[in-house]
């Protein structure tokens, strides 16, 4: 456990030292979302309808940005080989890396989302649901993304390939997250949608490390 925490702290420190890595996803998130009112016009009712979907779609794309570097750097300089030899199982290494990825990409989105909600005139009743859906959903995005990064490790044209593999797997999260926010906006209970998101989170936590670790072993063979 302490080895996992140390790896997590080490990854986090590396990410923070490279400041631009931290800013790029959240800046993309804000900028891409703000293109919407410029594209469809500033009509308030329309923006209210579009807000949950637009925020989530750009959040999805923003998490893609930093994914290809998740294992790539460690793979190239040989750190990953050493980590694989360490007593810590590869599954735990995946989890530590996912956690570091989420703190540097998912968490900033959580902080920026309410501001974007204001600018897109999100329903007053939807803010809590927006935050809860992001809190439950973005870790799953990081997990599924880590699997995609692991399975494309060492592949040619990794970046575009990664998006092609990961985006279809993101669809259920997008659907249930936006239905939760939509339900809250209409005064219905977002609970069932959020519970499904929570189940994705738990299932991902159990299953993704194994799939990603298997992919990493294949890349390191």
């Amino acid at each position: 456990m302490s080895a996992m925490l140390r790896l997590f702290a080490h990854d986090l420190k590396l990410q923070l030292r490279l400041g631009s890595d931290l800013i790029a996803p959240v800046a993309f998130f804000v900028l891409a979302t703000l293109l919407v009112p410029l594209g469809v016009g500033p009509e308030p009712n329309l923006l209210t309808r579009l807000a949950p979907g637009m925020i989530w779609v750009t959040a999805l794309l923003a998490t893609l940005l930093a994914l290809d570097r998740l294992f790539q750097r460690d793979f190239e300089d040989g750190t990953l080989d050493l980590l694989a030899l360490a007593p810590l199982p590869l599954e735990a290494i995946v989890l530590a890396k996912v956690a570091a990825h989420w703190v540097t990409t998912g968490l900033p989105l959580l902080i920026a989302a309410p501001v974007l909600g204001l600018m897109l005139r999100l329903d007053h009743g939807s803010y809590v649901t927006l935050e809860v859906s992001l809190l439950l959903g973005t870790p799953v995005l990081s997990m599924v993304g880590a699997f995609g990064a692991a399975v494309t490790l060492g592949a040619r044209r990794g970046g575009a390939l990664l998006a092609l593999l990961v985006l279809p797997l993101y669809v259920p999260i997008l659907i249930f997250a936006t239905s939760a926010i939509g339900a809250a906006g209409e005064g219905l209970s977002p609970r069932p949608h959020l519970l499904l998101l929570a189940s994705f989170f738990v299932a991902g936590l159990v299953l993704v490390p194994f799939a990603a670790a298997a992919a990493l072993r294949n890349a390191l063979e």
Binding site: V151, R157, L161, L164, L165, A211, N218, A219
Partner: peptide
Amino acid sequence: FLYLGYLALVDAFDDPQRGLRAGAILVLV
């Protein structure tokens, strides 16, 4: 899209065996 993703992945490696194995893991997911 899962099929397309598999087809893109399996051919993206210089070592064909590695592509097959990565593809198999993707199919299972």
